[in-house]
């Protein structure tokens, strides 16, 4: 006799990842409603969630939250497997890898703002490379680099500050 039902018992960790991913997805969808002058320049508010998860629960959970966010966010926005999805995915993977290295910087000197700016630069860097190699095979893509870099610094700073503040003020919940 084999059992006909598969029992999935979510652990505390699973629930926590789901909760944070949900928060990040909400931010992604809300952000998609903000009109922006240039495609590709976005605040990236969902990265605030990633930064908090990284600081509190480590890199593995941050990766889960970050990738779930890209997947579910693209499904909700109807972009799954569209070019925009691959751009988001490459940006997310690059920034998560960067965060994996940057999180080992001395905490006394480098706070969430540094991590946020690093992640933002990794994000636009990967997106530009993917766009150049695949979507627009012409060096003209790089013409907009200064705009993207400025956006990375600006939104990286803002997101980092918000993350730092939330990390300070939020109670240390599970």
């Amino acid at each position: 006799m084999t059992r006909s039902t598969i029992e999935l018992t979510p652990t505390v960790e699973d629930r926590r990842i789901a909760r944070h991913a949900a928060a990040a997805i909400v931010l992604t969808v809300a952000e998609a409603a903000i009109p922006l002058p240039l495609p590709g320049v976005k605040p990236g508010l969902a990265n605030i969630v990633t930064l908090i998860v990284l600081a509190r629960w480590g890199w593995r959970e941050a990766v889960w939250v970050g990738l779930l966010r890209v997947l579910a966010g693209s499904l909700l926005l109807g972009q799954f497997l569209a070019p925009g999805f691959f751009l988001s995915l490459s940006g997310a993977v690059a920034s998560l890898l960067t965060l994996g290295f940057a999180m080992h910087l001395p905490k006394r000197w480098f706070g969430p703002v540094s991590l946020s700016i690093f992640a933002a630069f990794a994000h636009i860097g990967a997106q530009l490379v993917v766009a150049r190699l695949w979507l627009v095979p012409h060096d003209g893509v790089f013409y907009l680099t200064p705009v993207f870099a400025a956006a990375a610094v600006f939104f990286g700073l803002i997101n980092g500050l918000i993350a730092a503040r939330l990390l300070r003020d939020l109670p240390q919940a599970t």
Partner: peptide
């Protein structure tokens, strides 16, 4: 909320922007 290194990273980011603008 900003730590000393954050200012450095911020400065480096701004310099990178300026550099990219001048180059491109």
């Amino acid at each position: 909320l900003l730590r000393p290194g954050d200012y450095l990273v911020l400065l480096a980011g701004v310099l990178l922007c300026a550099f990219a603008t001048m180059m491109l």
